[in-house]
Nucleic acid binder design. Structure first.
Lengths: 141, 141
DNA sequence: TAAATTGTATCACATACAGTTACAAATTGT
DNA sequence: ACAATTTGTAACTGTATGTGATACAATTTA
């Protein structure tokens, strides 16, 4: 599987909204920047909305805006909003429970998954959407 | 198939080898513990061999053993050995370069990818194969 | 030389994401 | 009330990829 681009697109979307300040932005306009279909954008906006990161108005002259200031949106929030998947998957066929390793390895791997997830969360929590916006404006340091 | 199980299987394989100490272990035997096809195991062993984590002997009575003691194998080595993929992918269609956001967002995302990767590496470097073996034997604390 | 074992190419299958089309629901302006 | 606009979402397609299986050459042992 080509790993998924949802986090990348979500950050892109939110940055466009950050730039627009308090204006309602149409999915079509965002799609033009991301270079994809508006439905792809709306699907992601749906997830971001559930996470209370954006708010949307339907109907004519509708669109989407940030639900809070960019300084209050952490990339860890974004990651959690769009990412259901894990870094690696556990075995998809049960290991052999008659083997001492097969019997216990899954618990260990599960433990590792949690440790990694916490690490990613910590890393992304260091960046706010405001930081990203600044980096986009001025270039990555 | 959600994300890939290669890291999980690789850790499983190495733990089986750690348990076997200095004996040559056949791919078939490992496959029985992991509950998969021996070819799947051999493919992974091939990657672990390239990373100098195991050494294999072909032919009758052949098999694979660890190339170094479990205490000298870090899970970060394993992760690097089998994992070509990233946490998230960049856009697969070029963002619109006429948009100030689209023009610079990729550099920012690339920067974030590196930060996350370093975080994962740090997390996994805390665990040696010996630690995993102990956890498998005694249960995860 | 026969048997055992790995290395690897190749195929089949399942899954998931990206992209698209289509249409109902909601909202606005007249 | 009506037409126009915009979102929400279901459904379908194409594509990529990981897993698993089969097959067979190459290697090693006895």
């Amino acid at each position: 599987m080509a790993s998924n681009t949802q986090f990348s697109m979500a950050v892109h979307i939110l940055t466009v909204l950050a730039q627009a300040d308090d204006e309602n932005i149409k999915s079509e306009k965002i799609a033009a920047s991301v270079n994809t279909n508006p439905v792809v954008i709306r699907r992601l906006l749906s997830q971001l909305r559930q996470a209370n990161l954006v708010s949307t108005q339907t109907g004519a002259n509708g669109g989407t805006r940030l639900a809070k200031p960019p300084s209050e949106i952490r990339l860890s929030d974004v990651y959690r909003a769009v990412n259901c998947g894990r870094i690696f998957a556990l075995h998809n066929r049960e290991p052999n429970k008659d083997c001492p390793v097969g019997k216990n390895i899954e618990a260990v791997l599960c433990h590792l998954q949690k440790a990694i997830d916490k690490g990613i969360d910590n890393t992304l929590a260091k960046y706010s959407l405001e930081d990203v916006f600044e980096m986009v404006r001025k270039g990555v340091s």
